[in-house]
Simulated assay, not measured.
Amino acid sequence: MNLKAIGLYVIKMPLKLPFSTHLGTVAEREAIIIEAIDSTGLKGYGEAVAFSSPWYTEETVQTCYHVLKDFLIPLLLDSDIIHPNQVDVLFKGIRRNHMAKAALETAVWDLYAKQKNMPLARLLGSTATTIPAGVVVGAKTAAAAIDQIEGYIEEGYSRIKVKISPDHDYALLAMIRGKFPDIQLMADANSAYTLDDVEKLKALDEFGLLMIEQPLGVDDIVDHAKLQKQLTTPICLDESIVSFDDARKAVELGSCQVINIKIGRVGGLKTALAIHDYCKDRGVPVWCGGMLEFGVSRAHNIAMAGLPGFTIPGDISSSSRYWEEDIIVPEVTVRNGAIEVPDQPGIGFEINYKRLKAACSFEEMFRL
């Protein structure tokens, strides 16, 4: 692929609205944008979607930067890869650090697609021209959640996700269902429950939810299988699935009926595609999760979410949902509940360098 340089840009921007879960509130988003450059000057982009603190996974922006700079980038620049699938093999000697790996791997995928003059979505096997848009509500009160949902329905979003916890679940969902009886509704627990809460979770069956996402421990598969046997509502696993084998074991054990695929969480597009294919062959629906991303990661999600196994609208919303101004042009927009899949080479979006530089706190370039 003739890689000649890798650039890292640490950026930070405030969210338009703070995003709250039982784990905390995010008011400002930090990330790393990766720029992969070949010998002709062609550029591909990826995004490290770890947060500033280790509340979602053990990775942070700072740990990603360290692993990228000191391990992954030297490995990549010292290699002679001819296809992005080789990046995963190249990084096998570095344990975990999935978000750092995915950031670099997706930049290579974007560059490779541009070298082939193909849209990334088509290169991955998608034929979709649009994807349905879902959105997640992260509000501290039921009244605020209702207000947000009303606005999102007016904007055309076809699936709504709300955050729940043991002290903020039944009453919240009852209010939402009372106000919006027909919306596609799902709940995300972010591991707030234990098996001691079985009766509390069984009570949520009456709301006809699409799924309850990650009710139990972040690294659990076994207890989720016990819980799923007692619920009518499908369980979706998120944090528990960080590898292909995790997905395989969860399906085999009956730990879930749905899987959330996040490119960053599973270490890159190669693994994400493998999980998609495995689940599709076994009739297990998948959907694309969100990480309060900037436009680069959002663009990779759009390319992936058009694959046929993604039968549930993902957490892929418009750029304006989070940012006054995104770092890509054109910005991602939702029209009539759908997002267009770009037909331009690579991710199909250009970098807004003026906005990138304005949001950038540190940058570094590594050359062959």
Rank of each mutant, 00 (worst) to 15 (best):
K12R: 14
G289Q: 03
M1H: 05
D281C: 12
D223M: 01
Y353S: 01
L231R: 11
L269F: 06
Y278E: 11
C360G: 00
L173V: 00
T333E: 13
K354F: 04
E340P: 08
V67Q: 02
D38K: 09
E324N: 12
Y322F: 13
D343P: 01
C236N: 13
I176K: 07
L173C: 11
Y278T: 12
V329Q: 12
G254M: 12
I263E: 07
I263S: 02
K229I: 04
L237P: 00
A305F: 03
I82M: 09
L269D: 06
A174E: 09
F71R: 12
L292R: 01
D182K: 15
E206H: 13
P181F: 03
I263F: 03
F207I: 00
A192D: 01
A100N: 00
T130K: 15
G290I: 06
L75F: 06
N336D: 15
A143C: 03
V296I: 15
K114R: 14
I33F: 05
A203H: 11
I37Y: 12
P166F: 10
G208H: 05
I153Y: 01
S320V: 15
N352F: 04
D223S: 09
G348V: 03
A171Y: 09
R282S: 11
D343F: 06
V10P: 14
G254T: 05
I183M: 05
G314H: 14
N117Y: 05
I328K: 05
A203F: 11
T232C: 06
C256P: 02
T130V: 15
G217D: 11
I37H: 02
A5M: 00
W109D: 03
T130R: 14
S320G: 11
L77K: 07
S317M: 13
L292G: 08
S240F: 00
D281M: 13
I347E: 07
R321L: 09
A50H: 07
S52H: 10
G156H: 11
I328L: 00
L68Y: 05
L124V: 13
P166E: 12
I183R: 07
A142P: 07
V162W: 08
I328W: 00
S319Q: 03
Y56P: 08
P74D: 01
E154W: 03
F362M: 10
M211K: 00
M186F: 09
T60N: 08
E35G: 11
T60Y: 04
H83A: 07
D246E: 02
M13F: 06
L204T: 13
S79G: 02
E58L: 15
Q86W: 08
S297E: 03
K280P: 01
G208K: 03
D245I: 10
G348R: 03
Y9A: 15
N260A: 14
E206R: 13
P234L: 10
C256T: 08
I183Q: 08
R122G: 04
R159A: 15
R122K: 10
I37R: 15
R282G: 04
A187K: 09
K4W: 02
C236Q: 15
V26H: 10
T130N: 13
E199G: 02
D246G: 00
G93L: 06
K163G: 10
K357D: 11
T129Q: 06
